[in-house]
Every structure is written in C-alpha cells, then in structure tokens.
Design a protein around this nucleic acid. Sequence first.
DNA 1: TTGACAAGTAAGCAGTAGCTTACCTATTAT
DNA 2: ATAATAGGTAAGCTACTGCTTACTTGTCAA
Lengths: 103, 103
Amino acid sequence: MAHGDVFQAISDPTRRRLVERLSRSELSVNALARPFRMSRPAISQHLRVLRRAGLVRVRRAGRERYYRLYVLPLRRVHDWVSHYERFWKDKLTALGKYLEETP
Amino acid sequence: MAHGDVFQAISDPTRRRLVERLSRSELSVNALARPFRMSRPAISQHLRVLRRAGLVRVRRAGRERYYRLYVLPLRRVHDWVSHYERFWKDKLTALGKYLEETP
DNA sequence: TTGACAAGTAAGCAGTAGCTTACCTATTAT
DNA sequence: ATAATAGGTAAGCTACTGCTTACTTGTCAA
C-alpha cells in the first residue's frame, strides 16, 4: 500500500491539476495527460503518488485505465487547515488583529 | 521575498507542527524548538521556509526573535481543498456515491 | 499474426530537501 | 572586556523528486 502522505501528494502543482481534472469526471490516462507538456511516463509517476496517497483509484477497461478521484484523504488536509480558518474569519483574536494591522 | 509555495511549505510534518505551536502563541525560536529532537539550525531552516511562504513573521526583541503565525496564505490551501468538500459531504454526487460503495 | 496503441516500470540524471557540524553576528551578563 | 547566549548562515552529505528515454506487458485492429 505504501500509504503516502496526502500533504506531500498535493504539494506538487502538476498533481493538483490532475486532481482538479478528475473532479469533473473519470478519465483515461491519455485524456488526463493531454493538456500537460510532460511525457506520459511522468504523468504515470504522478498518478502513482496519488494512488499511494489514496487520492485516486483505477478501473481497467480494455487497454485503457480510467482514473477516478477518491477525495476522502483530502479531509485530513481540510481538517488541519480549517483549524486556522478562524484566524482570518474571526478578526477579534489576537492573531486576527495582527493580521489586520499588517497588510 | 522568494515567495515560496504554501502547499510545499506545509508538506513537511515538522513545519506543520511548528505552525501548530505558533497557533497558540507567539514564541521565541528556542521555545519553539524545545520539543523537537532536531538540531536548532534545522529548525531555523524550517522557519526560513515558513517565512518565505509568508506563514510566519519575526519580531526581534533583544537577542531573541519571536515568531508569530500569519495564516493568510493558508487560505489558498483551504480554498483549494474546500472545493472537494462536497464530495464527502454531499453523498448524492457520483463521486460521493462511489465513495460510499467502496470502503 | 502482425502491428499499433494504452499504460506502466526501469534506469539514469540533475536538482532540491532535510539534516548535520562548524562558524558568524548581535545582544546580554559578569 | 570577556564570556555566554540567541539565532542565523555556510558547507557538505545523503536521500528523495521530477523528469527523461528505453523497454515491457496487455489489448485491440488489419
């Protein structure tokens, strides 16, 4: 399983774009890779990272493989970041005030 | 400014812990570094990454430097991740359903 | 059945990340 | 003035990342 880290998985902009594309629909690797200027093996390797982080799953159909987004691991990121949300929403906290004073 | 990437900045678990510690209060580097088993220069280097990502700011007081959290860059991460929130909250979407079917 | 195509893996390479020890600078204390 | 302290920077090392090209495997089409 190799169970990679989600934070690390989404730290790369290419992988974030892959996730974005998959949020619209399931896609074959070729379709996924189309807009990228990178070699297809590079994409395969990024997909491996996403797979290991549990962010995507593959369905084989003939000689194609369809990737589908599996968002649950993103929840960890969401939860971690949400903890700080109040600092930019609640301007009454010390840090929030500091924020306002310093542009 | 060197304007580092926030996603990359928080991809390291040590840096996330630093951010967590700073969310409670402003801290000097020594105070910050106390619970870590790493050398202090290592911490300084992590702080530089956080600084470049705009996540912390320093205030000098005598020979100490107090680091303070500056959360605004986290908003980018929050926004990006929030876009996928509906996939685990709204179980009616295709991907949400898929999620339910596959444990 | 021969070839084209989809996608993955392997090997190799340059660049960077994360750590260490050693050193430097500024401030405080004796 | 001397030494201790806070913290940063530099150099160097290992390990990992992200890419490439070359090769492999499985599937479909002529």
